[in-house]
C-alpha cells in the first residue's frame, strides 16, 4: 500500500509530488491521459516566476518531473478509470485493470479543453480538427483556419495562427467578445483575422474526403445557414474539470469543480482526500496557483497521515 497517490501530472500534481517526496512519503504519481497537463499544449509560459524570458511549457513540466523524481517520487503511466475513496485503504483502478491502494489521495486531474460535440468534430480529429494550436499551426501555412470562441484563449489562438495561416476566421456565438480588452484589440486589428458573429457551428465538413473542408454555421439572429470553407478547425470554448469519476463520492459545484471543505486548505469532505489545481479552481486556473495548491495538498496530506499514526 502507498502512503500517498497523486492523480495528475500538471503543475499541481508535480508540486504535490515534490513536497510529499521531500516529506519522505514516497509518493506514487499517476500521469493520466495527458502527461504534463495543459502546459504541454502551450508554447512559451511567460508568467511562471523565475524565468525572466519565459520557458517552453513542455520543458517546464519535464524539469518539474525530474525534480520530483530526485526526491523519490515514482511514476506510473496510464490513467485511472475508477476510484473508491469511501473505504480505507482507498482504491484506485487503472485502465489496465490494476488496482492500487493508498492511505491518502491527492486529486490533481486538472481540466480539459471542451469541444462543441457537433457532427464531424470527433471524426476529423487530427485531420484538420486540432486540440493544440501551437502543435499544429505549422501545417496550415497559407491556408484558411477557423477558431471557435470569443474569450482570451480564442483570441490568443487566432493571433498565434496568423503566423502561419493566410486567413483566420473567428466564429463566435455572440455579437461581442468576452476576451480582455488587450486581447480583443490585438485580434480585431489583425488584418488576417475576420469574424463571424452570432454564429453557431452546426457541423464540421470533410468526413467524405478524410480532412476538414469547411464548417456549416447558422446565424442565431437571422437563422441563415452558410458554409465557411476552411482547412483547419480550432476550438477554444473553455475547459471543464476532470471530475467525472469522483462525482458520486465527492461534492462538486454546478460547473463540476470539486468542492473544498475547509477554507485555506485542500481538504475535501472525505478525510485523506485532497484536491489541488484546476480540478478545484474555477477562479484562477494558473500554473502557479495550481503549483501553490499542490504544495498545500502535500502538506495537508502529510499532517493527516501523522494524525492517523497516533
Amino acid at each position: 500500500m502507498h502512503s500517498v497517490i497523486i492523480l495528475g501530472s500538471g503543475p499541481a500534481g508535480l508540486t504535490a509530488a515534490i513536497y510529499a517526496a521531500r516529506a519522505d512519503l514516497a509518493p506514487l504519481l499517476i500521469h493520466g491521459p495527458q502527461p504534463g497537463g495543459q502546459l504541454t499544449l502551450t508554447s512559451d509560459v511567460e508568467n511562471w516566476p523565475g524565468y525572466e524570458h519565459g520557458i517552453l511549457g513542455s520543458e517546464l513540466m519535464e524539469v518539474m518531473k525530474k525534480q520530483a523524481a530526485r526526491f523519490g517520487t515514482t511514476y506510473k503511466e496510464g490513467w485511472v478509470t475508477a476510484v473508491d475513496l469511501t473505504h480505507d485503504p482507498k482504491k484506485i483502478t487503472m485502465e489496465s485493470g490494476e488496482v492500487l491502494e493508498a492511505r491518502a489521495i491527492i486529486i490533481a486531474t486538472g481540466a480539459s479543453a471542451m469541444w462543441l460535440n457537433v457532427p464531424g468534430e470527433k471524426e476529423l480529429q487530427g485531420k484538420g480538427v486540432s486540440a493544440c494550436a501551437t502543435c499544429d499551426g505549422f501545417f496550415f501555412r497559407d491556408k484558411h483556419v477557423v477558431v471557435i470562441g470569443g474569450g482570451d484563449a480564442a483570441m490568443e489562438e487566432a493571433t498565434f495562427l496568423t503566423k502561419f495561416a493566410s486567413q483566420v476566421t473567428v466564429i463566435h456565438r455572440r455579437g461581442e467578445l468576452r476576451a480582455s480588452k488587450i486581447m480583443q484589440q490585438k485580434a480585431l486589428s489583425n488584418p488576417k483575422i475576420s469574424f463571424e458573429w452570432n454564429a453557431e457551428v452546426l457541423e464540421v465538413l470533410g468526413k467524405d474526403v478524410g480532412h476538414v473542408t469547411g464548417v456549416r454555421i447558422r446565424n442565431n439572429q437571422t437563422n441563415q445557414e452558410k458554409v465557411v470553407e476552411t482547412d483547419g478547425y480550432f476550438a477554444a470554448i473553455g475547459h471543464k474539470p476532470n471530475t467525472e469519476m469522483f462525482k458520486d463520492q465527492l461534492e462538486t459545484d454546478v460547473k463540476g469543480y470539486l468542492k473544498i471543505a475547509e477554507p485555506f486548505s485542500t481538504k475535501t469532505a472525505i478525510p485523506g482526500v485532497f484536491a489541488a489545481g484546476d480540478v478545484a479552481d474555477h477562479m484562477y486556473r494558473q500554473a502557479v496557483t495550481a503549483a501553490g495548491t499542490g504544495c498545500m495538498a502535500a502538506m495537508d496530506a502529510e499532517r493527516w497521515l501523522e494524525t492517523q499514526q497516533a
Partner: peptide, 10 residues
C-alpha cells in the same frame, strides 16, 4: 513530431 510540440516530447 516536431521540436515545438509539447505532447510530442511527452
Amino acid at each position: 513530431w516536431a521540436p515545438w510540440c509539447g505532447p510530442c516530447k511527452v
